[in-house]
Amino acid sequence: KELVLVLYDYQEKSPREVTVKKGDILTLLNSTNKDWWKVEVDDSQGFIPAAYLKKL
């Protein structure tokens, strides 16, 4: 599985998104959309702007 590093805090703005903190390491589930990547946070899944993430 691929991991990503969160570069900036992000507060979810819709139920399909997730809240993350700078420095979090998350599992990347889908990066086919260049603007929004799907990640797994704890036991939930959701989208975060790709610009907030860096592949490890």
Rank of each mutant, 00 (worst) to 15 (best):
K1T: 10
K1F: 12
K1C: 14
K1Y: 13
K1D: 08
K1L: 12
E2G: 10
E2C: 15
E2L: 11
E2I: 14
E2V: 13
L3E: 06
L3G: 02
L3D: 02
L3Y: 14
L3W: 13
L3A: 05
L3H: 09
L3C: 13
L3F: 14
V4K: 00
V4H: 01
V4M: 02
V4C: 11
V4G: 03
V4W: 05
V4F: 03
V4P: 00
V4L: 03
L5I: 12
L5V: 11
L5Q: 08
L5H: 03
L5A: 04
L5P: 00
L5W: 05
L5M: 10
L5G: 01
L5K: 05
L5C: 09
L5D: 00
V6G: 00
V6H: 00
V6T: 04
L7K: 05
L7T: 04
L7F: 02
L7A: 03
L7P: 00
L7S: 02
L7M: 08
L7I: 08
L7C: 06
Y8I: 08
Y8F: 13
D9N: 08
D9Q: 03
D9S: 07
D9T: 05
D9R: 03
Y10I: 02
Y10M: 02
Y10D: 01
Y10W: 08
Y10Q: 00
Y10P: 00
Y10T: 01
Y10C: 05
Q11L: 12
Q11Y: 14
Q11A: 12
Q11I: 14
Q11G: 07
Q11M: 12
Q11D: 13
E12A: 15
E12K: 15
E12W: 15
E12F: 15
E12C: 15
E12Q: 15
E12G: 15
K13L: 09
K13A: 10
K13G: 08
S14H: 11
S14L: 08
S14V: 06
S14K: 07
S14M: 08
S14G: 13
P15T: 10
P15N: 11
P15W: 08
P15I: 09
P15F: 07
P15V: 08
P15D: 12
R16E: 11
R16Y: 13
R16S: 12
R16T: 11
R16L: 13
E17H: 08
E17I: 06
E17Y: 07
E17A: 09
E17R: 09
E17L: 07
E17N: 10
E17P: 09
E17W: 07
V18H: 04
V18G: 04
V18C: 09
V18F: 14
V18S: 04
T19Y: 06
T19A: 07
T19W: 06
T19H: 07
T19S: 14
T19F: 06
V20Y: 07
V20W: 05
V20N: 01
V20A: 11
V20Q: 01
K21Q: 08
K21E: 04
K21P: 01
K21C: 11
K21Y: 10
K21H: 10
K21F: 10
K22S: 07
K22V: 06
K22D: 02
K22Y: 05
K22T: 06
K22L: 04
K22I: 04
G23W: 06
G23I: 02
G23L: 02
D24C: 06
D24P: 01
D24T: 11
D24S: 11
D24Y: 07
D24F: 06
D24N: 08
D24I: 06
D24G: 05
D24Q: 15
I25L: 06
I25G: 00
I25N: 02
I25S: 01
I25V: 11
I25R: 04
L26A: 08
L26K: 01
L26D: 00
L26W: 04
L26S: 00
T27K: 12
T27E: 07
T27M: 09
T27F: 11
T27Y: 11
T27S: 08
T27D: 04
L28M: 03
L28K: 00
L28H: 00
L28W: 02
L28T: 01
L29H: 03
L29F: 03
L29N: 02
L29Y: 03
L29G: 02
L29S: 03
L29Q: 03
N30V: 07
N30H: 07
N30E: 14
N30P: 03
N30A: 09
N30F: 05
N30S: 12
S31Q: 08
S31Y: 07
S31I: 05
S31E: 11
S31F: 05
T32G: 09
T32M: 10
T32I: 08
T32Q: 12
T32F: 10
T32L: 08
T32C: 13
N33Q: 09
N33R: 08
N33S: 09
N33L: 08
K34R: 12
K34A: 13
K34L: 09
K34W: 06
K34S: 11
K34I: 09
K34P: 14
D35M: 12
D35C: 14
D35Q: 11
D35F: 15
D35L: 14
D35P: 01
D35G: 09
D35S: 10
D35T: 14
D35N: 14
D35H: 15
W36H: 04
W36I: 05
W36A: 03
W36D: 01
W36N: 02
W36Y: 10
W36M: 07
W36Q: 03
W36R: 04
W37S: 01
W37I: 02
W37D: 00
W37A: 02
W37G: 00
W37Q: 00
K38P: 01
K38L: 15
K38A: 09
K38C: 15
K38G: 05
K38M: 15
K38D: 03
K38R: 10
V39I: 08
V39M: 01
V39R: 00
V39D: 00
V39S: 00
V39H: 00
V39Q: 00
V39C: 07
E40F: 05
E40P: 00
E40Y: 07
V41K: 15
V41M: 10
V41F: 12
D42I: 08
D42P: 07
D42T: 08
D42Y: 11
D42F: 10
D42R: 14
D42G: 15
D42W: 09
D42E: 13
D42V: 09
D43K: 12
D43L: 09
D43N: 14
D43V: 07
D43P: 03
D43E: 11
S44G: 14
S44C: 13
S44L: 14
S44M: 15
S44Q: 15
S44Y: 14
Q45L: 07
Q45N: 09
Q45Y: 14
Q45P: 09
Q45D: 09
Q45H: 11
Q45F: 13
G46I: 15
G46N: 06
G46K: 08
G46S: 08
F47I: 06
F47R: 03
F47S: 03
F47Q: 04
F47A: 03
F47Y: 14
F47L: 08
I48F: 02
I48D: 03
I48N: 01
I48K: 00
P49W: 05
P49T: 03
P49F: 05
P49D: 03
P49E: 03
P49G: 02
A50C: 08
A50T: 06
A50I: 05
A50Y: 03
A50H: 04
A50F: 03
A51C: 15
A51E: 11
A51R: 15
A51D: 10
A51N: 12
A51G: 10
A51S: 14
Y52E: 02
Y52T: 06
Y52L: 09
Y52H: 09
Y52C: 14
Y52P: 01
L53E: 02
L53H: 02
L53N: 00
L53C: 15
K54L: 13
K54G: 05
K54A: 10
K54D: 07
K54C: 15
K54Y: 11
K54E: 13
K55H: 07
K55L: 13
K55N: 06
K55E: 06
K55R: 12
L56M: 09
L56R: 01
L56I: 13
L56E: 03
